[in-house]
Computed example of a mutant assay.
Amino acid sequence: MRTLLILVTFLFVFSSFSAQRTLYVDSFNAILGNQEKENELLTFVKNNEFKAIILYELHIIAKRIDMSNPKTNTILAKFINLAKKQYEVQEVIASAENKSFFINHISAYNKSRLKSSEKFDGLNLEYEFWQNSASNYGGYYCENYLRKNEIPCTREGSFKNFIATLSIMKLLSKESDHPIKIEAYVGNYNKTEVDEISKYVDRILVSAYEKNTEESFKSIKKALTILSQTTFKPNVSVIFSSEVEFMSGYFKYNSLEKSELEFLSLSKNYNFKLGKFIYYKYFELKNSVKYYNFTSK
């Protein structure tokens, strides 16, 4: 009886939780404008109950079209509208790594469109301030964002730039006439850092990149403990990777529902708001799910 009660409780939690599933869409530049590929992506999204998508490669698309011009950005507006109106997507989120792109392209795009169904609903910051490329001269972050702005190429300097970007994103959200959520991917952090991040974001995305759910949970137990101690108690989303070196093989033999339920059962004793599960990324996950669906018939 006790086992049945626990199972029913988890299923109840899971039923509300699965509706918050999110997908990173890689190679979006190759998809946008190709009706067959757009429909294939959005059919996968709907069939697997993803209610939000995070779009990569917007910086490439910004080279194709003027995202601030309603005459040239119609191709993007049509896709976002299609996702929301016909494929039950609730949130379309723009991912970028610097404040100027959010200002000059993403925010400018939203301001150019009149319909809410054509607008971005979230801003996703992917800037890995903890990486060596920020603290080493010649590193990507050091050379592209820090040195030229007279910011020290250190973890502290990189974190300062990270927070400055989040503060701009938060400001853009407040100024928008369309509701905008702010989120940040964080792979490595301490309590002081995550307390500061939590002031600006609606949710924090934490990677759990291992080969199965049990190892994924073990890999981020420390990170979840830190999050449970934060002052602002942010919403937390766990990222599973469908890349070959991580959970690609696991997802060939386990459904997304089972994976999420297993992780929930492992994390139930932690004091944080568990938000959406996020899957990185579309093309590799599609192959794994296709294999699972074929073998499980």
Rank of each mutant, 00 (worst) to 15 (best):
R2V: 13
T3L: 15
L4S: 13
L4W: 13
L4E: 15
L11I: 14
F12D: 10
F12W: 13
F14C: 07
S16R: 13
F17G: 05
S18C: 10
I31N: 00
G33R: 03
N34E: 12
K37T: 08
F44I: 12
K46G: 00
N48A: 03
N48S: 04
A52T: 09
I53N: 01
I53F: 01
L55Q: 01
Y56D: 10
E57H: 10
A62N: 15
R64A: 09
T72L: 14
N73T: 05
L76S: 04
A77D: 01
F79R: 00
F79W: 00
L82P: 02
E91I: 12
I93L: 09
A94V: 07
A94C: 07
S95L: 15
N98P: 08
N104S: 14
N104W: 13
I106P: 02
A108G: 10
Y109V: 00
S112I: 08
R113M: 05
E118M: 03
F120V: 06
L125W: 11
W130V: 03
W130I: 03
A134I: 03
Y137Q: 13
G139W: 04
G139H: 05
Y140Q: 14
Y140V: 15
E143P: 03
L146E: 00
L146W: 05
L146S: 01
R147S: 12
I151N: 12
S158G: 04
N161I: 11
I163S: 09
A164Y: 06
L166H: 00
M169Q: 05
S173N: 03
E175N: 15
H178V: 13
P179S: 06
E183V: 13
A184D: 02
Y185K: 14
Y189K: 08
N190A: 03
E193V: 11
D195R: 04
R203K: 15
R203P: 04
N212T: 04
T213V: 09
E214Y: 14
F217G: 07
I220P: 02
I226D: 07
L227E: 07
L227P: 05
Q229L: 15
F240N: 06
S242C: 11
F246L: 07
F251P: 02
K252S: 09
S255V: 06
S259L: 00
S259I: 06
E262M: 10
L266Q: 10
K276F: 11
Y279V: 02
Y282V: 00
F283Y: 14
L285R: 03
S288H: 03
V289K: 09
V289N: 08
F294G: 02
T295S: 14
K297L: 14
